[in-house]
Nucleic acid binder design. Structure first.
Length: 560
RNA sequence: GCGCCUGUAGCUCAGUUGGAUAGAGCAACGGACUUCUAAUCCGUGUGUCGGGAGUUCGAGUCCCCCCAGGCGCACCA
């Protein structure tokens, strides 16, 4: 167990003991007492930890908050880590820690290596996280880039927290949009042979479709000219889909994302799973027919409206596929929890999907949908309107090429999913030197530089047993150690609350404390014992920075 | 019209699930390199927390009503 958790437990137990004693003295039923809550005071000069326990329990004990706090302080047992207790404000109890307890973190980092920060709160539970899942009808856009950064890092965090995690990409390679894609391909194909055709109004008008057909003609010439339209579209569609899927894989790999599973919607048509799930819902009486279509009664399960499973023309909807897909995740593959990352424009879909899960007997709480607010691109001081169908968009690939993989991943993980993201392209490219990611990477490179210089004068990072850690006694050093020791807690928070942005913030904070330490405390050239202790501290910081950056999928350079 | 998300410093955003005097980065200004990387550090200030009412010892945070922006409200995905 990490020392930070031991210390917190220590204080919580102290509070509980104190409570019990006071309860006994006053004849109060101890089971009524609320559980102690620890918090970190906003102003650290108050102490390392604080509790509002006296204020929340004052009423129960029939005392004034400050009086209650005084009693609790008197009855607080002696513990290993707490060095002083003070009462302040309306009745806060502030705890200061014995700073020697902080040195433990250096041992933990040394002993655990890359596993430092790992937790077992997941207890091996199986989590699937599905993200990006862009239509294979063209290149991926900025929203996909955001979803990719969020999903990939969240997956890493959950793994670190002890969950079994699979990353999955759902390929919509069937259905209505794919038909339109085929029609668009055909139009461009014929157009390239001089025929007078037009891309359908609702089709895909982007230049990438033309490029695809040029490439196809280069390879296969006019073989599709003499086919009938249906066959031709099928041929072109199948070829283009594979092409696009391969390209998405390449682009995502370049972005640092690797999926465990690429799941095709079409596979569920072949296996019959879509038909089966529709029949299951029918059999259970959760459907009805209206205007020739088959509807799912989502409103029976709390959704705000029903939705169509089978259209009047006999074709199944995306919704039907998605139900079958999620049943596959939960039932066939047995995931305990499924996390989907969707754009905010799919918000209306959430209630109906959960309703469908409930109808299938799956606890809807096991499906967690993270709604990501949309990304707006600012270029030349204006917000660009983008559309895949119109083809006037900046792609994920463009972004990664222009701004750099590290910066893009870091930037997208700086904000919570439910804030809108304004991506200023000009700023990202022009002023990328002022990007926060470089600040963190620079801290890492600086440490590496110290270690190199030390090595060049014959000094390596010493074994911990040979180091007098009490030589680390400056404020900058204590603050750095405090931050290092809070890393596991930060992982836990990020995992439980599904908030990857906590890790970018943590990395920035840690880098900042290191830069301050660097300015205030020299390493090389100091007295031998001080140098050794600081080498260990610097190296520990380097390891944790690299650890956090690796969760983010961002490089930790040794030189910059 | 209804539902979801958002509104906090000039800009971009945090705010530990209701706690103490509301924070950080950027931008602006002033300092700091003969010494381990100045992509750095130190200092300076700015808030009707969109507005109004309410809940209580205590509200940026919770309830209600408005205002503004984004996204939905398809036999599209």
């Amino acid at each position: 167990m990490y020392s930070i958790f031991k210390i917190q437990d220590d204080i919580k137990q102290g509070i509980t003991q104190s409570y019990k004693k006071i309860a006994a003295d006053n004849g109060i039923d101890p089971s009524l007492i609320p559980e102690a809550e620890l918090e970190v005071p906003k102003d650290r000069s108050f102490g390392d930890y604080a509790t509002n326990a006296a204020m929340t329990s004052a009423k129960l004990f029939g005392k004034k908050p400050r009086e209650m706090a005084g009693l609790m302080k008197e009855n607080f047992p002696h513990t290993e880590y707490v060095s002083s207790i003070e009462i302040a404000g309306p009745g806060f109890i502030n705890f200061k820690l014995d700073r020697a307890g902080l040195y433990n973190v250096l041992n933990e980092i040394d002993g655990m290596g890359d596993n430092f920060g790992s937790l077992d709160i997941g207890k091996g539970r199986r989590v699937q996280i599905e993200f990006v899942s862009a239509n294979p009808t063209g290149p991926m856009h900025l929203g996909n880039a955001r979803g990719g950064a969020l999903g990939d890092v969240l997956a890493s965090i959950l793994q670190k927290a002890g969950y079994y995690v699979e990353r999955e990409f759902y390929i919509n390679d069937a259905g209505n949009q794919i038909e339109k894609f085929g029609a668009s391909l055909e139009a461009r194909y014929l157009e390239l042979f001089g025929q007078d055709t037009e891309v359908p109004e609702e089709g895909y008008h982007g230049e990438d479709v033309v490029e695809l057909m040029k490439e196809y003609i280069e390879k296969y010439g006019d073989v599709c000219l003499k086919m009938d339209s249906e066959e031709r579209q099928k041929k072109l569609r199948e070829w283009a889909l594979e092409k696009n899927i391969d390209r998405m894989k390449d682009d995502l790999e370049a972005y640092g994302i690797h999926y465990d599973v690429w799941f095709r919607e079409s596979s569920m048509y072949e296996s019959g799973e879509i038909r089966d799930v529709i029949n299951e819902l029918k059999d259970k009486g959760h459907t009805y027919e209206s205007d020739g279509a088959i509807w799912f009664k989502a409103t029976d399960f709390g959704a705000d409206k029903d939705d169509v499973l089978v259209r009047a023309n006999g074709l199944t909807t995306y919704f039907a596929s998605d139900i079958a897909y999620h049943k596959n995740k939960f039932i066939k593959r047995g995931f305990d929890t499924v996390i989907d990352i969707w754009g905010a424009d799919h918000a209306g879909h959430v209630g109906r999907m959960k309703a469908a899960m409930a109808a299938l007997g799956i606890d809807p709480d096991r499906l967690v949908v993270i709604l990501m607010q949309l990304v707006r691109l600012k270029m030349g001081g204006e917000f660009a309107r983008m559309s895949k169908r119109k083809g006037n968009m900046v792609t994920l690939r463009d972004l990664v090429d222009a701004v750099g993989r590290d910066a893009v991943r870091f930037l997208f993980n700086m904000r919570s999913a439910d804030s809108q993201f304004e991506f200023d392209m000009d700023l990202a490219i022009k002023e990328s030197n002022e990007n926060p990611v470089f600040y963190v990477q620079y801290a890492h490179a600086r440490i590496c530089s110290i270690l190199r210089n030390a090595s060049s004068i014959g000094t390596e990072v010493p074994a911990l047993a040979d180091v007098d850690m009490t030589r680390l006694n400056k404020d900058a050093e204590y603050q750095l150690m405090e931050k290092l020791s809070s890393y596991p807690e930060e992982i836990g928070q990020a995992a439980l609350r599904l908030e990857p942005y906590r890790i970018t913030h943590y990395a920035s904070d840690l880098a900042s404390l290191f830069h301050s330490f660097y300015t205030e405390c020299r390493v090389i050239g100091e007295e031998e014992e001080v140098m050794k202790a600081r080498l260990v501290l610097a190296d520990s910081t380097r390891k944790v920075l690299a650890n956090a950056l690796s969760l983010l999928g961002v490089n930790a350079p040794e030189k910059m």
